[in-house]
């Protein structure tokens, strides 16, 4: 930039540098323009042909990658949702099937139990009827025996009282008369 320090009187802006304000020295313009042109053309070609296409490529790649990854994520989420739906459907089916099996089994067992009970009841009814019939038979037999015994007993009692046995027919008639009452 400059020589350091020393406030000296002879070192004024107009002395020492050939005079004039450097940016307005026309004799330096040609060289500056030449180098500016050269450098700017090199810079422009470098930027236009190499740097910008490369950076545009990098940015496009990144955007494509991000979009691709997002698309993949959406697809995978769809897959996951579908799997969840399938699972829930399978679960619901299994639950329905289990319910159906339970209902069917319960109905079958109820029907079997009913049938068994009916057959047992029928069997009991038959046995009961037989028992009632035999009781009635026994009762009838017993009742007919009572009349005979009563006739005999009446004959024997009269014989003891009067010493003379009544006729069988008279005793039987008397017993029948009493039994009818």
């Amino acid at each position: 930039m400059a020589q350091p320090t020393h406030a000296t009187t002879e070192h004024t802006p107009t002395s020492g540098h050939g005079g004039g304000f450097p940016p307005f020295k026309a004799e330096t313009y040609a060289s500056q323009l030449l180098w500016l042109g050269l450098c700017f053309v090199v810079l422009y070609v470098m930027v236009a042909k190499l740097a910008l296409p490369r950076m545009a490529g990098i940015l496009a790649d990144r955007r494509a990658r991000i979009d691709g990854d997002l698309g993949e994520a959406v697809r995978l989420k769809g897959d996951a949702d579908a799997a969840v739906a399938t699972y829930e459907k399978a679960l619901a089916d299994a639950r329905n099937r289990a319910h159906a099996i339970a209902t069917e089994t319960r109905d079958r067992l109820t029907a079997e139990a009913d049938a068994h009970r009916k057959s047992v009841e029928a069997e009991f009814a038959v046995k009961l009827a037989a028992a009632e019939r035999s009781i009635a038979a026994s009762k009838t037999a017993a009742m007919s025996n009572v009349r005979g015994i009563a006739v005999d007993a009446a004959g024997a009692i009269v014989n003891r009282l009067i010493g003379k046995a009544p006729s069988e027919a008279a005793a039987a008639a008397a017993v029948d008369h009493v039994l009818k009452r």
């Binding site: 330096t28 060289s31 500056q32 180098w35 450098c39 810079l43 470098m46 740097a51 490369r54």
Partner: peptide
């Protein structure tokens, strides 16, 4: 000239930043 030197430096720094750093892509 010194002006030319620093024009070249500016171009070189630009080139270094824009091409050197992006070479890895």
């Amino acid at each position: 000239t010194n002006s030319a030197l620093f024009m070249v430096v500016a171009v070189a720094v630009t080139g270094l930043l824009m091409l050197g750093t992006t070479s890895g892509r």
